[in-house]
Design a binder for these strands. Structure first.
Length: 580
RNA sequence: CGGGGCGUGGCGUAGUCUGGUAGCGCACUUGACUGGGGGUCAAGAGGUCGCCGGUUCGAAUCCGGCCGCCCCGACCA
């Protein structure tokens, strides 16, 4: 490709809207153009890179026994109603109707559709296991697109669905995908850690997210530096220990606490650590008020809370909702809560499982400007549900098995990361909802056991840049680079330069190399800076200066030094440099 | 949806507080010089100041409404 013809321009300044390095470079290098929030156009260079990403994914999926197919983006609403996800995913569904008023959704994912195909084509255990996948556009009306290509509303996803006869088979399929993912991210030059993740409301068993650790990520995970335990903060387990259970329970006592509305100010006033207090948090779960009690030095993990409550819609109460529920913000406590509330329906109380072990905590008195000292679980109050609902944080102790039967107990690191892909054991949820069954060897009808395995390709591209760049620009991994060689002709107006460069260009191309040829009449600085920005792995320069010596200059994008090579035999040297 | 910020040629921005002919840098066009890290000079082209309404002799600027985009939080590849 001649750069004089290439569609797409590099920018000299950083666009104002870009904050993350990948977003900045994607725009600066002229790779992408934003059309709307979370909706992007991909120019030729980006498109070539994306093709390479997809090629790698295809190779690894095929090697793992996957069969590629193509599914529609337009889905009749009925199949979404059948799975119930027209409701559970309603906030992100793009919906529309046709001219006969039939309702459709733009597919945000394709479990419903693939199960339709399964029902048509699989009837026997002899047809299983089955691994099918697609690489195509998905549409999600995300609440907040962000970070350039990190979070899009229209995006491309590789989704593989596995169907097995039983959970043992699912374990095999899952393992295959887990290993394929490791290879894919490795080939893309992205270091990832597989982290335990939330299996969601589908009741799946284990699931892993492949996380690329970066401060620009939107996920939070906990990593144990000693044993390697890694988990999304949503599910991260940690060792919780009672802080003060050596004391004898003391009589409960009400004290005035005017102006003390936060745990910190309360603890400071009383000269106690925050771990000696009991914090109250108000949630609305499927429209019902829920009173959440947790030790004052800890935070609520909303994912764990959602699981413990068994609800789907969960949110912090607004001030209006708090008032309507009759809670006393700043001085709320579980002691006598339901007796004091004027509203008739009982409020559900859920307590973190550490609270029953604590002694003599300070808690709200359910009236303005008052708290209770020496509150003790079971003697003074009880929860409807006791569960682990605490959020792990920086320094939380690793709960993974350590030596022998004890726990690892190493302080964990809190890190941000981008979720590159997820491998997910769906189990029989869709099979049962949508009727994906097969006949086993005894002729009995059984539900197929499913797994799903997704990778977002544009996000992957963004992460590749995030993980492979310097202050000058992108440094493409060999397998991803839009072009293998960036041929620079300095002063192409000069006949000897032009003819040497053109000859080399033809020569490289006819030997099967992808060459980006800078034939523009630009100054040296412009050309070299663009070459660095665009990040092609190998730069080859032809100039009056090199020609004087009968040579070319060859430089790797990833290295500082360049070398002169003789014009004769340059082709084989360049080929060797690429395959190195 | 809550909180914060922004909207002025393709990109980056000044001007807005205090109303009075829309400015600068980059990119673009033409010519000359230059020639190994965004070079110099000269001459040009390009703007409904996000949209609608209001106030005013006069609005990028003041007022009201709407739209869009970015960032931080609740969801996910």
């Amino acid at each position: 490709m001649r750069m004089s013809q290439l569609f797409g321009k590099t920018l000299r300044q950083d666009p104002a809207e870009a904050e993350t390095p990948s977003h900045r470079l994607l725009l600066r290098a002229g790779l992408v153009h934003q059309i709307a929030a979370g909706v992007y156009a991909f120019l030729p260079l980006a498109w070539r890179a994306l093709h390479n990403v997809e090629r790698i994914i295809r190779e690894e999926m095929d090697a793992a026994g996957g069969q590629e197919l193509m599914l529609p983006a337009i889905h009749p609403i009925e199949i979404w109603q059948a799975s119930g996800r027209d409701q559970t995913m309603k906030d992100i569904l793009f919906r529309f109707s046709d001219k006969r008023n039939r309702e459709f959704v733009l597919g945000p994912t394709h479990e419903e559709v693939i199960v339709e195909l399964f029902k048509r084509n699989v009837h026997s255990y002899r047809d299983l296991p089955l691994l099918v996948y697609q690489i195509q556009q998905k549409f999600r009306d995300e609440p907040r697109p962000r970070g350039g290509l990190i979070r899009l509303r229209q995006f491309t996803m590789k989704d593989l669905y596995s169907f097995d006869t039983d959970f043992e088979g699912l374990d095999v399929s899952y393992r295959k995908m887990y290993e394929a993912y490791t290879r894919i991210f490795d080939r893309c030059g992205i270091p990832t850690v597989p982290a335990l993740a939330d299996s969601g409301a589908m009741g799946g068993r284990d699931t892993h997210e492949f996380i690329y650790l970066t401060e620009y990520g939107e996920d939070t995970c906990l990593l144990c530096p000693k044993c390697g335990y890694a988990a999304n903060a949503e599910v991260a387990a940690f060792v919780k220990e009672p802080a003060h259970n050596a004391e004898e329970p003391k009589p409960i006592e009400e004290i005035p606490t005017p102006g003390l509305y936060t745990i910190q100010s309360l603890a400071d006033h009383l000269g106690l650590p925050t771990s000696k207090t009991c914090k109250a948090v108000f949630y609305s779960a499927d429209g019902e008020p829920v009173f959440v009690a947790i030790r004052g030095d800890m935070d609520v993990n909303e994912s764990k809370l959602r699981h413990a409550l068994g609800t789907t819609d969960l949110h912090y109460m607004s001030e209006d909702e708090v008032a309507a529920a009759g809670f006393v913000p700043g001085s709320a406590g579980a002691v006598g809560l339901n007796e004091r509330l004027p509203a008739a329906p009982r409020v559900r109380i859920i307590a973190d499982d550490l609270l029953p072990e604590e002694v003599n905590l300070v808690a709200g008195a359910n009236k303005p400007d008052a708290h209770l000292l020496n509150v003790n679980y079971s003697r003074d109050w009880e929860a409807d549900t006791v569960a682990d609902i605490a959020l792990a944080g920086e320094g939380s102790l690793c709960a993974a098995p350590g030596h022998g039967e004890s726990q690892c107990r190493t302080p964990m690191d809190l890190r941000r990361g981008i979720e590159m892909g997820q491998v997910f054991k769906l189990g029989t949820f869709y099979a049962e909802k949508l009727g994906a069954t097969y006949l086993d060897a005894e002729g009995k009808q059984r539900p197929a056991v499913m797994g799903s395995y997704g990778i977002g390709t544009e996000r992957l591209l963004a992460a590749i840049i995030e993980a492979n760049h310097d202050e000058r620009g992108i440094i493409w991994p060999t397998e991803i680079a839009p072009f293998q060689v960036h041929l620079v002709a300095l002063q192409p107006e000069r006949e000897e330069v032009r003819s040497a460069a053109e000859e080399l260009y033809d020569n490289l191309q006819s030997n099967g190399l992808a060459v980006l040829y800078d034939d523009r009449e630009e100054t040296t600085g412009v050309k070299f800076n663009d070459a660095d920005l665009l990040g092609t792995p190998l730069r080859v320069t032809v100039s009056p200066r090199t020609l004087e010596k009968g040579s070319l200059e060859v430089k790797r994008r990833s290295e500082k030094e360049s070398e002169l090579v003789p014009l004769d035999g340059a082709l084989s040297l360049i080929e060797a440099a690429i395959s190195r």
